[in-house]
Design a protein around this nucleic acid. Structure first.
Lengths: 224, 224
DNA sequence: TCGATCGCTATACATGCGAGTAGCGTCCTA
DNA sequence: TAGGACGCTACTCGCATGTATAGCGATCGA
């Protein structure tokens, strides 16, 4: 990642250019545009990868690997990123934008990203509840999946409102979003939204009356 | 809407077929497929609308109009739909799926839908705060926009995980999602997530130290 | 020094799309 | 009943894309 672009082999340059193009313009970006960005000819894509699908697969794998690496090296669990733990560096920015686009597009790559984050967040959440930092839930897994869907979804929607993201300075775009979402997130997570418990209690007693003992599990595996 | 399909003119049949196709398969659906679904030839699209873009625009306008109508006639503000107030009928289901796809795709149509919902929710929110139902926010508009982005975004992500939505029974898909999201939503809105106020207070005192008096307004107009 | 492999380019298909044109039948009207 | 507008279809064109093939030139080992 920190290697100068000129030092990379054509294959790697093509892969990195594809990641940037996909992140900035979407996965429908043409092979010719990707090749132009990499400074090579279009035919080289086929030479190295055989088909566009394979190039895409390698991009997905690379992004996931880099995301995990970047996450491990800076084990930041700052409060604002509890359920959307993302690095805000320039390198991290493009990774997140790529991931958001994958989720937005649907398909297996997006599913994998989401599942990966849910698994990570579930681990963190169980621990945080045990340490008394988070309020416990009646269905921990359903809550975590829901919170991830909300957090990622809010970013997806926010970015979808913009016609095209700038090719450079992904980090700045991220910072803008964080600044916008920080206060509402902290307010909601700290003070909630309802002033009374009646809606929740009503739902709980309603569900207790059904033959569905663990409330809220209906359709739980919907996103799998 | 309740008119039998055979009674409609070709133009209306094309428009309704396009709405269904767009909702089920996305906006890249070909004119030929839409025409086939409407039971007419592909050239008729051009005859009536001139170009695909115009057909799309008419679909957008129709969906928004029907959504507003359906919303007005059933002024339901049940707690679970506070910030994603949607009808769950069959007709309402396809409208919501269409809207979700518009948002997911980005562009002006999605923006309009979001802005419309934000405006509606802001009105409701101000009133609910005044009536003591909702906890007040330090920045009401930012919170509303954020909650809408979260609510819609969660649905977008959830639906994006599915390769293709069923052409029929949009309502059932909606019900599955509600069943999945209800408990976490009520828990979060009622009990919050953090056990202590320290994260929020820390952020507030930090923002008070900057020259940015109304905390959380940075990048507020990002989604416009 | 030979030659073979490798990285890469240029060019040529095949396909699917939106858009455009010509013409046929039908219904409404004068 | 003749005429014309309208709804609609069949066919064609240009364009962009992914895919495929042929060939060039350099590097490296025998």
């Amino acid at each position: 990642m920190s290697t100068a672009r000129e030092d990379l082999t054509g294959r790697a340059r093509l892969r990195d250019a594809a990641i940037e193009c996909f992140a900035a313009h979407g996965f429908d970006e043409s092979l010719r545009a990707i090749a132009a960005r990499a400074g090579v000819s279009a035919g080289l894509v086929r030479h190295h990868f055989g088909a566009k699908e394979a190039l895409r697969a390698e991009c997905d794998a690379t992004v996931l690997a880099r995301y995990r690496a970047l996450k491990n090296e800076s084990l930041n669990t700052s409060p604002q990123q509890l359920f959307a733990q993302f690095p805000s560096s320039r390198d991290g920015g493009i990774l997140l934008v790529y991931i958001l686009r994958s989720v937005r597009e649907g398909g297996d790559a997006g599913k994998d990203f989401i599942d990966h984050m849910v698994a990570e967040a579930l681990e963190f959440s169980r621990d945080a509840v045990e340490r008394g930092i988070l309020v416990p839930s009646r269905n921990e897994e359903a809550r975590v999946r829901f919170l991830i869907q909300q957090s990622i979804g809010a970013m997806v929607v926010s970015f979808a409102m913009h016609p095209e993201l700038p090719l450079d300075d992904f980090g700045a775009v991220m910072d803008r979003y964080y600044a916008e979402a920080m206060l509402p997130t902290l307010e909601l997570y700290t003070e909630g939204l309802f002033t009374s418990r009646e809606y929740l209690d009503e739902y709980l007693s309603f569900m207790a009356g059904t033959k569905n003992p663990p409330a809220g599990r209906a359709g739980e595996n919907m996103t799998r």
